[in-house]
């Protein structure tokens, strides 16, 4: 979601894209993260997963399914749109809003795990924390991301990381998920010529 990644770019496989995670890598990472969430929260049964649209939602759904298997209960999964809380709204024409679906029980006093595809500048997560603040008061908030590519611009870190991927700021990380893009994979592409 951060500016500078092309995760929004849905145009299939690009020539010159270097695959860095395969379908099975992603599946393993999600399974491991689900176990880590269970372990780190000492099996707490008040965990709620909130995906940040767009691809954070699909990841939260997958992570929720794995965590539900581990914990033997239906882990609530929702989505949290951050558009209205972005710090760069005025730099582009108004964007369409994406769905926010908070599980019916609400987030008050729950342990909310925010889920996103790529952690980059940290600005998306900052906006998500603000958005969450208007929805309720969780007892704690944690962050799970599939890829941490570094280059933080804010003091934010992830609690659960699928893969640490050292990148140059000029590179682009593209996450593809079968639900949305027809295939699973994480790709690194070189600097895109400015068009």
């Amino acid at each position: 979601m951060d500016a500078g990644t092309t995760t929004q770019d849905s145009a299939g496989m690009h020539p010159g894209d270097k695959p860095v995670m395969s379908e099975s890598d992603i599946a393993r990472a999600i399974t491991r993260m689900a176990h880590e969430i269970d372990e780190r929260t000492t099996g707490a049964h008040d965990v709620i997963l909130l995906g940040i649209p767009t691809r954070g939602v699909e990841l939260a759904t997958r992570l929720g399914a794995r965590l539900s298997e581990i914990q033997g209960r239906a882990v609530p999964v929702g989505s949290l749109d951050i558009t209205m809380y972005r710090d760069d709204l005025r730099r582009r024409p108004a964007r369409a809003l994406l769905p926010t679906e908070i599980p019916a029980a609400g987030v008050d006093d729950a342990l909310v795990v925010l889920v996103d595809d790529v952690l980059y500048s940290g600005r998306t997560v900052r906006a998500a924390l603000d958005a969450l603040n208007d929805v309720g008061r969780p007892r704690a908030v944690q962050l799970a991301v599939l890829v941490d590519r570094g280059h933080r611009e804010l003091p934010i870190r992830a609690d659960y990381v699928g893969k640490n991927l050292p990148t140059s700021m000029r590179e682009n990380v593209r996450v593809a998920l079968a639900e949305r893009d027809g295939e699973d994979g994480v790709f690194l592409s070189g600097p895109k010529e400015q068009s």
């Binding site: 749109d81 209205m84 809380y85 709204l89 369409a96 809003l97 994406l98 769905p99 926010t100 603000d130 208007d134 929805v135 309720g136």
Partner: peptide, 23 residues
């Protein structure tokens, strides 16, 4: 349709304890 879809997302704000966005 963009206005209607946006309005639909914004309608949820009315059900929240804090009916305000910083936008």
């Amino acid at each position: 349709l963009l206005v209607l879809d946006t309005a639909q997302e914004l309608a949820q704000i009315a059900d929240r304890p804090i009916k305000k966005l910083p936008t």
